[in-house]
Design a protein around this nucleic acid. Structure first.
Ligand SMILES: [Mn+2]
Ligand SMILES: [Mn+2]
Ligand SMILES: [Zn+2]
Ligand SMILES: [Zn+2]
Lengths: 136, 136
DNA sequence: TGTATAATGATAATGGTTATCATTCCACCC
DNA sequence: GGGTGGAATGATAACCATTATCATTATACA
């Protein structure tokens, strides 16, 4: 399961650098298609396959952070401390949060279940403040 | 985002009953293809499109529980109390756990961020006890 | 400067899921 | 009991995010 062989990144090519710069210069959570389109708009078009490979390689190298959302993978800057996400199911807005206690309790329960945790994913679904106000 | 129009289930047909019975008679987390194959093996074959529609309808009716895992959606009995999951990235084994405190803290942080939480998903990734022992 | 290997990009393929549509089923009415 | 309209089915096509293929290009370095 979830077994993908990722060859280590050897070269930070101009394409990968462009992807990295784009992600590092924003607080957004980008999917591959958005990166592809934005780079095209900026006149430094990168092939969609290269975008996918670049994102995978950059994540593997720890230069960006990947999160598997509902149906697509998104990437964000890696220079933020660990956090989880709230996803508005109406407008798609992503809110970030971090909670020491929740993190600690996850570790505790993994230990208790004899499970060697290598990662986790916590996403809260619901309505952001804007959408909630709009719907009443 | 995540906006699917689900017509309410009107009839619990024999196909849907078969899907429901299958899921209710086990503790497994089934994906659509597994349901399809198992029902075929039992001689009560149900078309794959009908399986997908049935699973969606049964979930919508609250008769089964759906969880979006890594790359596919899985379904389990709804008559268990709420819990989250640990997924072994080597063998695919799914371990269940529930943690009052984590649930409560999620509610708290949502409130704090003015976010109306309608659901959440917590998955811990890692190695189950069996796979950890096997790999050393 | 040559060579081996990595990376690119166009494109095909994959795989899970949803849409289409002709057919069948079923609840309800007469 | 037969007719009818809406719901469900199932075969199949389409969709869509992602990965694989492969010929071409770039790059490190012997
Ligand atoms: Mn984030
Ligand atoms: Mn479960
Ligand atoms: Zn919103
Ligand atoms: Zn395992």
């Amino acid at each position: 399961m979830i077994m993908v062989i990722i060859p280590p990144m050897q070269r930070l090519t101009i394409q990968r650098q462009a992807i990295l710069d784009l992600i590092n210069s924003s607080n957004r959570h980008w999917d591959a298609e958005e990166v592809n389109r934005e780079l095209s708009d900026r006149g430094q078009s990168v092939g969609i396959a290269t975008v996918y490979r670049g994102l995978t390689a950059l994540e593997e190298a720890g230069l960006i952070e990947g999160i598997q959302f509902y149906d697509r993978k998104r990437y964000e800057r890696a220079d933020k401390s660990h956090h989880d996400h709230m996803l508005c199911t109406v407008c798609g807005h992503i809110e970030e949060f971090s909670h020491e206690k929740i993190e600690a309790l996850q570790e505790a329960i993994a230990l208790e279940k004899d499970f060697e945790m290598t990662g986790h994913q916590l996403v809260l679904f619901g309505l952001c403040a804007v959408c909630r106000n709009a719907s009443k």
